[in-house]
């Protein structure tokens, strides 16, 4: 039974992942991602990690993919970048090889080795308590500092979004001295207004 659940969920996860990479339409890719995340949630349930499964569905499938879709809609679905040009010759095959090697090595490690190590002390303490209780306990005892430290990340996210996204009237300091280069035309520096693509 457990094996069957695993097999079905794994197929969903992998199919979704392929869909993300292969689809040409970004909306389809984002929807394939939902399948992957949902499959992972099923795997969590099979491991009796109910809280993680719920979070997986609510946060990832619910919030993050919706955010993806918003961004895709705002940028426009039709705008497709030409992905067929290779900036560096041989880059793609090399990337495929390196990716396969890394993936193979990691899978081999996980398959061949056994999980060693001391059993969790936290899990022992509250044996019998349900999943959410245990996570809550760990958050406020062992991982209290980590829990509080994440708040700094939220501050950074807010400030960073303001810095990068706020549209303000740009002062005209460039009028007398344009940001584009003054006396040189080799284009190696000071090319603030040139399209970046030319250098890539």
């Amino acid at each position: 039974m457990e094996y069957a659940v695993f097999a079905v969920a794994a197929i969903i996860v992998l199919a979704g992942a392929f869909g993300v990479v292969v689809s040409r339409n970004p909306v389809h890719a984002a929807l394939s991602l939902v399948a992957t995340l949902f499959g992972v949630a099923v795997l969590f349930v099979a491991q009796e990690a109910h809280f993680l499964a719920a979070v997986q569905v609510i946060v990832y499938a619910g919030a993050i993919v919706v955010l993806f879709l918003f961004v895709i809609m705002l940028l426009g679905v039709d705008r497709a970048d030409d992905l067929d040009t290779e900036p560096l010759i041989g880059q793609r095959p090399a990337a495929v090889l390196a990716g396969l090697a890394l993936g193979g090595a990691l899978v081999a490690v996980v398959v061949t080795s056994t999980v060693t190590g001391a059993p969790r002390s936290g899990a022992e303490d509250s044996a019998g308590a349900d999943n959410v209780t245990q996570i809550g306990r760990l958050l406020f005892t062992e991982h209290l500092f980590a829990f509080e430290a994440t708040s700094v990340l939220l501050v950074i996210a807010v400030v960073g979004a303001v810095v990068l996204a706020r549209r303000r009237r740009i002062e005209e300091i460039d009028r007398e001295e344009p940001v584009t280069d003054l006396g040189r035309d080799d284009g190696s520096a000071g090319d603030a207004d040139e399209p970046v693509e030319e250098h890539a």
């Binding site: 990340l153 950074i156 996210a157 400030v159 960073g160 810095v163 990068l164 740009i170 460039d174 940001v179 090319d191 603030a192 207004d193 040139e194 399209p195 970046v196």
Partner: peptide
């Protein structure tokens, strides 16, 4: 993450 934002601070330089 803070430094990623700082790297893009100069909004007028591509």
């Amino acid at each position: 993450i803070a430094v990623y934002v700082l790297a893009g601070l100069h909004l007028r330089r591509r």
